[in-house]
């Protein structure tokens, strides 16, 4: 806070002397916070540790040393979980406050090493048979259980990513478009089903009042994967694009009305953008295939995008974040 600004406000009579005193007091006794530095160090440390151990095991797979490393991973995993069991707050349906930041990252390290461990068991001994599903299914169950039991949003995201991987889709934020082969029709159906399922999970969490704050994570992943799948469907199915437009339109409508109820501009924005893309693809496939004029295409893009910009600007003035 800037003391000068407040003394000016005091002179204007906008803040009382008592409030001014409080401001000066807070400002002069303010401490330098190392919160983010420590958190980043913890996160990087956990990533490096679990990543390094993961590579180390596979590099030494032919030597006797790899069993030592494996033992170390197992011990680390058990140690982390034990630490978290000891320090965890009592289970609650609501959001629980974690006792300290170290706890969050110990849990993360525990989960990451557990996934490495399962992956190794599968790789070396095919412990879960040749059905690959099981090797992703077990970590998924453990991750979901960990996320709910210890109340950890990051691990919930990992679990959701794992769920999608189990179903055969990559929904890691930066890989959702590059890693998926949408010409595979099964993938599109799976994506739609997964999206609906995740949004349903979000609704259930809120309705049943069970870990309400998890709803955002579920809905975020669900909405994205649903729209990406339906839009991919519009592009991939040559004669059925109109049929694929319908679920996209319904999705836009539902996301839109839900977002207005929650005052969440983020989902309004998603509904508008995905809706715009869907409508544009519909128009492109329905009309521009027959109109042989590139200028019309360009003009459509310019005019429609400007319209969307104005629409968004007016909307964001209407919806104020709570």
């Amino acid at each position: 806070m800037n003391i000068d600004t407040f003394s000016k406000l005091q002179k204007e009579g906008l803040i009382s002397d008592e409030e001014m005193q409080r401001v000066t007091h807070t400002e002069t006794t303010r401490l330098f916070s190392l919160h983010w530095e420590i958190k980043t160090a913890l996160y990087l440390g956990v990533l490096l540790l679990s990543g390094g151990l993961g590579i180390l095991v596979y590099k030494n797979i032919d030597t006797i040393g790899h069993q030592v490393i494996l033992l170390f991973i197992a011990l680390l995993c058990i140690g982390c979980y034990a630490y978290c069991f000891r320090h965890r707050p009592p289970f609650s349906r609501e959001k629980t406050e974690s006792p300290n930041a170290f706890y969050d990252y110990a849990l993360l390290l525990g989960s990451l090493t557990f996934v490495t461990f399962i992956g190794y068991l599968q790789y070396q001994y095919t412990a879960f048979g040749t059905a690959y599903g099981l090797a992703t299914f077990i970590p998924m169950v453990v991750l979901f259980a960990t996320a709910y039991y210890f109340d950890h949003l990051g691990i919930l995201s990992m679990a959701v990513t794992n769920l999608a991987a189990w179903a055969g889709i990559a929904i890691t934020p930066f890989q959702v478009l590059s890693q998926n082969d949408f010409s595979n029709h099964t993938l599109i159906y799976t994506g739609v089903a997964l999206g609906i399922g995740l949004v349903a999970m979000a609704e259930l969490s809120e309705k049943r009042d069970f870990k309400k704050h998890f709803a955002f994570t579920y809905r975020n992943f669900g909405v994205h994967i649903f729209f990406i799948a339906t839009i991919a469907g519009m592009c991939m199915f040559d004669s059925w694009y109109l049929v694929w437009f319908l679920p996209a339109a319904v999705g836009v409508y539902l996301t839109w009305s839900r977002a207005f109820r929650d005052h969440s501009f983020y989902f309004v924005l998603l509904a508008v953008l995905y809706g715009y893309v869907a409508v544009s693809i519909l128009l492109a496939r329905a009309m521009f295939n027959h109109v042989d004029d590139i200028y019309v295409g360009f003009l459509y893009m310019i005019v429609s995008t400007v319209a969307v910009i104005f629409f968004l600007v007016n909307l964001s003035k209407k919806i104020k974040q709570p």
């Binding site: 996160y43 990533l47 993360l108 990451l112 996934v115 490495t116 399962i118 992956g119 599968q122 790789y123 059905a131 690959y132 599903g133 090797a135 992703t136 970590p139 949003l153 990051g154 691990i155 919930l156 995201s157 990992m158 959701v160 990513t161 794992n162 999608a164 991987a165 189990w166 179903a167 055969g168 990559a170 890691t172 934020p173 930066f174 595979n184 099964t186 993938l187 159906y189 799976t190 089903a193 997964l194 994570t217």
Partner: peptide, 27 residues
């Protein structure tokens, strides 16, 4: 949580989606 999801690669991703057991009702 998004950063965690980004840096996390699910263990053994099925390479061939056709042989995968899709689980409840997908498709």
């Amino acid at each position: 949580s998004l950063i965690i999801a980004q840096t996390f690669t699910p263990g053994s991703r099925p390479t061939d989606t056709h042989t995968t057991n899709f689980g409840g009702g997908s498709g």
